[in-house]
């Protein structure tokens, strides 16, 4: 039977209360939201904490999708299912719905959260790649207020983030621009599994149909989600074409850092990184055109 090592359980009644508890308990405490990553790790003794602070009662405060004309804000306690079902979010950034359809399974998605996924910082985690793709910034709150960091700053290695022992991730924010389309592609060994490789793309077209900006984010091919600024540089100002997607695919295959493991060889993962980048870009451009 797998059970976590003993710990004390506390429930936070507000974000400030959670921060207060974290300050008092330090690195011996951990926040638990959905728990679908943390509890399995605690069962395996890959993670051990003396205190778990349950923040699920903060859903009113931290569970929301706010789509504004120039920015989208999503609360850290927003559940996968809520991300999947948000029509507003899917309209502005279909990449979220694409990804959520293939993250874990419907039952897990009922409970798992955006913030938990990002804070878990698993190298294969799909929402991290989505957030990298859309240029999300993470809002981290502590006693002295908020700080906002980029995805590059947020992830510090496998299972490590910029969130301090006495801090909490409260929100992600990313800009909304006109002419955009986005998409997510994933290859997994079986339904609901972690990605062998997954790739997100977002493209913004100018009035002439040229690429004003393009971003790609990969999962499972490096210590954390992989952003590829060289693809943005190569695509900006160009007309979308199959040749251009090929070029981006080559850059993705070269630019990522996959390891051979039980999910596949390094060579296969580089192939997937390239192919999935092409498909995601192609679909993003189609969607940007459809929206006009």
């Amino acid at each position: 039977m797998q059970v976590p090592a003993p710990f004390e359980y506390e429930r936070a009644t507000s974000v400030d209360h959670a921060i207060g508890l974290l300050e008092r308990l330090g690195s011996s405490a951990r926040l638990v939201a959905g728990g679908h990553s943390l509890l399995p790790m605690m069962k395996l003794r890959l993670a051990n904490f003396e205190y778990l602070i349950d923040i699920n009662d903060l859903h009113d405060e931290l569970g929301y999708v706010e789509v504004r004309h120039d920015e989208i804000r999503i609360g850290a306690l927003t559940r996968h299912r809520e991300l999947l079902e948000s029509d507003e979010l899917a309209e502005a950034f279909p990449i979220f719905r694409d990804a959520e359809k293939v993250i874990a399974d419907p039952v897990v998605r009922n409970w798992g959260t955006l913030g938990g996924s990002l804070c878990q910082a698993d190298p294969s985690e799909d929402l991290s790649a989505v957030c990298t793709t859309v240029g999300a910034r993470c809002v981290i709150r502590g006693r002295d207020g908020e700080r906002v960091v980029s995805m590059t700053e947020f992830h510090r290695g496998p299972y490590e983030t910029a969130v301090g022992d006495d801090e909490i991730l409260t929100e992600i924010r990313f800009p909304v621009r006109g002419g955009g389309g986005s998409a997510f592609e994933k290859v997994e060994r079986r339904a609901g599994d972690w990605a062998v490789v997954s790739a997100g793309a977002a493209v913004w077209l100018d009035a002439d149909g040229r690429i004003a900006d393009a971003r790609v984010g990969l999962a499972a091919v490096g210590p954390n989600t992989t952003g590829l600024p060289e693809i943005s540089a190569a695509l900006t100002g160009r007309d979308p074409s199959e040749e251009l997607y090929d070029e981006a695919g080559r850059l993705a295959a070269q630019g990522c850092r996959p390891d051979t493991d039980m999910r596949g060889s390094e060579e296969y993962k580089r192939h997937l990184a390239g192919e999935l980048t092409k498909r995601a870009l192609r679909r993003s451009v189609e969607r940007a055109r459809e929206r006009g």
Partner: peptide
């Protein structure tokens, strides 16, 4: 009323 995998939820969380 939402399905959840009860091996991955603490009894305390269901309180």
């Amino acid at each position: 009323e939402k399905p959840v995998k009860s091996c991955t939820m603490l009894a305390a969380m269901a309180g």
